[in-house]
Nucleic acid binder design. Structure first.
Lengths: 222, 222
DNA sequence: GCAAAAGTGTTTACGTTACACCCATGG
DNA sequence: CCATGGGTGTAACGTAAACACTTTTGC
């Protein structure tokens, strides 16, 4: 029952990874290119031995030196035929804390760069769609999941977390309401340590009780 | 930049369609099989000429005689290798009003049947996952979109609509609150006609102002 | 006239929002 | 001692939930 129809030409299957980070008080996305070619996302080709998510994770490791970050399947696109063959690309998006990147221009590796979303280079149409969809999904998930925590390092302050929410959601939040709601999730615990940052009161450092876990929140709206 | 890596074996790409309807006061799903083989969803293979959604729509037309119904991409799965080749399947889910089906056992066509969700036959693991995911998506979308309207024929009563919500959401709803919220969406208009159904007051018939359109509702929760 | 589903408002409870001041530190 | 961001509670508001009776029809 699996595959015995006429005319199966063997379409190419790729995975594209839209990698976001929060840097310089902005949401930024990773793009790479070969030489002076067109910019694109880290891309892997599915060869038959690996699962889709593994293929995406491998592309992320190869092009950005990143492992173990949050990675979620986004949508599957049909790209215009290239070299006579159609390419189906399964888009993923990934989130990384700032500073987790080991970018480089080693030979055999893509030359990668972060782009803020308001200063992107020209992208092929399908890639633009992936990016739009990834951003919409990210903004939506802010409101009903704990996904924003994935942008932060192991320990962080509530103000840093609030800043992530404000940057992605593009709106300022009330400090007291924000802290109340975040703590009500019962996902954070105090480390007992503080961050001293300037000439003012030090901030408590928190950590996730279950790092890497992203919860869906029933009681809506953050 | 598209496809020139070594070892591209040309994976097979399929589309599986999880088709739901509300029948007999239950949510049911369409399965088909060849002879006494395993049950599966309507499936198309992507050959290179057609977009993914077209491929899914064609499978639905072929196996269920259905056109123009609500169809949404769900998730992409990696199936275990068959005949030595891996199959990537892009799952869709579709919704049809009861009675829109022209099932049959014509030669060359799948022998199809509706199954209520609590009396399913054995399914391969990946198909079970598709079904679970489709059902979860459907239940979630009840709450923040007008997707439930897609289960109803062109004209319908508010009680019929409420029944759809109750069946999919598996919970009884308050009649007055339900009607208030549905009408507040401003998506329905009165036809001026009534349905006489038994020895009791006839029910107003409504129609969608924009049939086929599924809106996302900001003001949460139905 | 009675059974059976259609239709209709108001009050209550709860969750969300708005809002202002004191605290701890470094220079 | 002053500038800076960290940290805290309460009242007002608006939305969602609970709730019961009248209407219209067919038999």
């Amino acid at each position: 029952m699996i595959a015995h129809r006429a005319g199966l030409t063997g379409v190419h299957v790729a995975t594209d990874v839209v990698l976001f980070t929060v840097r310089n008080r902005r949401l930024e996305v990773l793009l790479g290119r070969e030489g002076e070619g067109a910019w694109h996302f880290p891309r892997g080709f599915v060869t038959g031995d690996e699962a889709l998510a593994d293929c995406a994770a491998a592309a992320l490791d190869r092009d950005a030196g990143l492992r173990g970050v949050y990675l979620e399947q986004l949508y599957t696109f049909c790209l215009g035929p290239a070299a006579g063959r159609r390419v189906v690309s399964v888009a993923y998006y990934a989130l990384a804390p700032d500073g987790r990147l080991h970018l480089g221009r080693r030979p055999g590796r893509l030359a990668t760069r972060w782009f803020p979303l308001d200063a992107l280079p020209e992208l092929p149409e399908a890639l633009g769609e992936m990016l739009d969809m990834a951003q919409r999904r990210l903004v939506a998930k802010l409101d009903y999941s704990t996904i924003a925590f994935q942008f932060l390092p192991e320990t962080f302050t509530l103000s840093e977390l609030q800043e992530v929410y404000e940057i992605i959601g593009r709106a300022p939040l009330d400090k007291r309401n924000f802290r109340r709601r975040i703590l009500a999730l019962r996902q954070l615990e105090e480390t007992g340590r503080f961050r001293r940052n300037g000439s003012h009161r030090p901030a408590r450092l928190y950590r996730l009780k279950e790092p890497g876990r992203v919860d869906i929140i029933k009681g809506r709206s953050l």
